[in-house]
Design a binder for these strands. Structure first.
Lengths: 188, 188
DNA sequence: CTTAGCTGTTGATAAATGTCAACAAAATCA
DNA sequence: TGATTTTGTTGACATTTATCAACAGCTAAG
């Protein structure tokens, strides 16, 4: 049983038949190590569901520094969202963190799925709501906490990330340099 | 004609009749100078639409410092969103900035409105999507720019705010102190 | 009008975080 | 496996931003 089907079951009251229909619309997409799924300047044509591993959504500044906007973990879906919903070019890139297994559905397929499975639209709304709430949480963290507080909060909320993700990705997500993160770890 | 009706017309293809129906569901709510609409610890029972002025959504830390999570300007709606959608107690407060004119709709009324005007649910989804996109933009700004860059960006994107809002509210929104903002202004 | 509070500015200083460089350890790939 | 690249750590130092304090101007209330 795919992680996707389980996730659908958990977050909706769709019938098994409809779960199967939705799940079938997402196609496995084979990826390589650190593969870029959306490149800055592209239009994000697909929504990605993570079966295993992590995706990172990041932006770069003029000096080439990278900043991780979001980390998408197993059982979550995402893409360069502002580009995806507007179907305009993306300012962000999406990349596998190491090895990842993903499914994907195109923007057009997703629209068709709304027609074919009306309840799915409400589920999609819920997914967006959850994503929005988590982004609000992120904003609060960023405006109200210093680096150490953010680090400790993430350690508490997402302990797995520290085992499974390279430190520089975590640092980018926290909005600090990898050197600062390294020092926070050691002075615990 | 209310700002609300205009906004509905602009962002949806609802008929005039349905616009009237939706607009009628939002009730004027008289406010006083700096009135608190949602208090930390309350459940956010209402969604607020701003006809005039600004609302601020803010959190406080242990030392009593305030941090402005969002500013809701004329023609926008908002509330302590995580609390509103879950109907659980809010970690944030919502307050008028000075004098403001607002309309509001209760959580229950909103659910009824979905039933009565099905197209409204899609509109609501779009509103959430837009809010989500703008929160993503905020996150990027916060993780990738320093205080001066954030200040200059906001000055460019929201020049009105600097005329209409007190500097300490802007500073809280930028995630800096009012002293730092004052210095950024003078060293332009 | 006058007093008390709020708002914004400036200075001195401290604290937090970034930058750059060197190096060690680990992972990847040919 | 061995070579090469990536990742993580540490130190010295620079920069950014916060904190604390003083004060001036404005505003609102009695």
């Amino acid at each position: 049983m795919s992680v996707l089907a389980e996730t659908l079951r958990k977050h909706s009251s769709l019938s098994e038949k409809r779960i199967a229909k939705v799940a079938a619309a997402y196609k496995p997409f084979p990826t390589k190590h650190n593969q870029l799924l959306v490149r800055k300047g592209d239009v994000a044509k697909y929504l990605y569901f993570v079966e295993k591993g992590y995706l990172r959504v990041f932006v770069t500044d003029a000096s080439g520094n990278q900043f991780t906007r979001f980390l998408i973990e197993e059982g979550m879906e995402g893409t360069a969202f502002p580009s995806f919903i507007s179907q305009k070019i993306s300012s962000a890139s999406v990349q596998c963190v190491g090895k990842a297994e993903v499914l994907r559905i195109s923007y057009d397929e997703l629209q068709k799925l709304y027609q074919a499975v009306p309840e799915f639209e409400r589920l999609y709304r819920k997914i967006i709501e959850m994503a929005y709430v988590s982004s609000i949480h992120r904003i609060e963290t960023l405006i109200s906490m210093n680096a150490r507080e953010r680090y400790l909060q993430l350690l508490k909320e997402k302990p797995k990330w520290f085992q499974q993700l390279p430190a520089n990705v975590i640092a980018e997500y926290l909005g600090i340099t990898k050197e600062t993160l390294s020092r926070l770890k050691s002075t615990k």
